[in-house]
Design a protein around this nucleic acid. Structure first.
Lengths: 149, 149
DNA sequence: TAATATGTATCCATTTCTAATACATATTGC
DNA sequence: GCAATATGTATTAGAAATGGATACATATTA
């Protein structure tokens, strides 16, 4: 599986944490530990989906296009993943086989039902809530470090 | 995405339709439209998971190890897909980044919840019911052909 | 003993994914 | 206006995953 969904989520959590200050692709790439080009390519998809906007020039970078409370994992997933990727299917069973020729439509129908369950679950989590979890983990980490010292 | 899950399902539906008559990897490969080696590789995993058994020698082949009514898509999915494949994640965010270093655990937690929803949906469908759908589609096809003729 | 069929290993071509680089374009600040 | 900064996109190349194909030892049947 590719990591586009995970990296896109990573990007948006950073933007949420930035609280309105633009983040450059270089800054984000440093957090993700990849190169700015990949970030900009993903950002392009997020922008097309209406999740982010960008500002060029000095002090520029990316911003959330709407509040993190109103962006769910479903939005992220659908913006970076082309629809047909979750469950692959063999394209060309033997058309002369009375069983094989019916597998694709039957299998696809069940996979669509499955995918609906998955999308519904994704819609229950927002970028804002994930950013809050990240912040809480960081606070706990710092508190532990202080106690130990 | 790979097609292992789809092909494994295809195999099991054929075995269900065989009603106890062993199916050779060559017969199955002809229906799937691939080579027998791939079928045998998948079958090996299905056998390890306890879904099928095999008989060598003349007239041999694969059989369902238990009734198709007691094999769900969840069983199939888990037997051919290594657990960590559904949602990929970038392995190494910057450990010095107070946000980036918390992304993997937070993301994984949500993906586990999502995957649970998916698995629950898969568990609702059996090989027997899918085989029945395939048979019904085939009957409809033949009925249409007769009417037209 | 010959024929059939599995189970597994190996090799190869294709595709997919990511890294890296380059460059045109837009915006900021002096 | 000009230099610096940053995006948006194209292109190339390398790595990894996937499936196709072949080979062969082993087991079973007749």
């Amino acid at each position: 599986m590719n990591t586009r969904f995970a990296v896109a989520t990573h990007i948006l959590i950073i933007l949420q944490a930035q609280q309105g200050v633009p983040a450059s692709s270089e800054l984000i790439a440093s957090s993700v530990n990849t190169n700015p080009s990949l970030i900009r390519r993903l950002m392009s998809q997020l922008a097309k989906a209406g999740l982010t906007t960008s500002q060029m020039g000095t002090g520029g970078g990316a911003l959330l296009a709407r509040p993190g409370e109103e962006i769910t994992l479903l939005d992220v997933y659908q913006s970076v993943d082309d629809e047909s990727s979750l469950f692959g299917i063999h394209a060309d069973p033997n058309p002369a086989c009375p069983i094989g020729r019916h597998i694709p439509p039957v299998f696809k129908a069940h996979m669509q039902a499955t995918e609906r369950a998955l999308l519904a679950e994704l819609a229950r989590t927002t970028i804002a809530s994930m950013a809050a979890e990240v912040a809480m983990n960081e606070n706990n980490l710092r508190a532990d470090a202080t106690e130990t010292a």
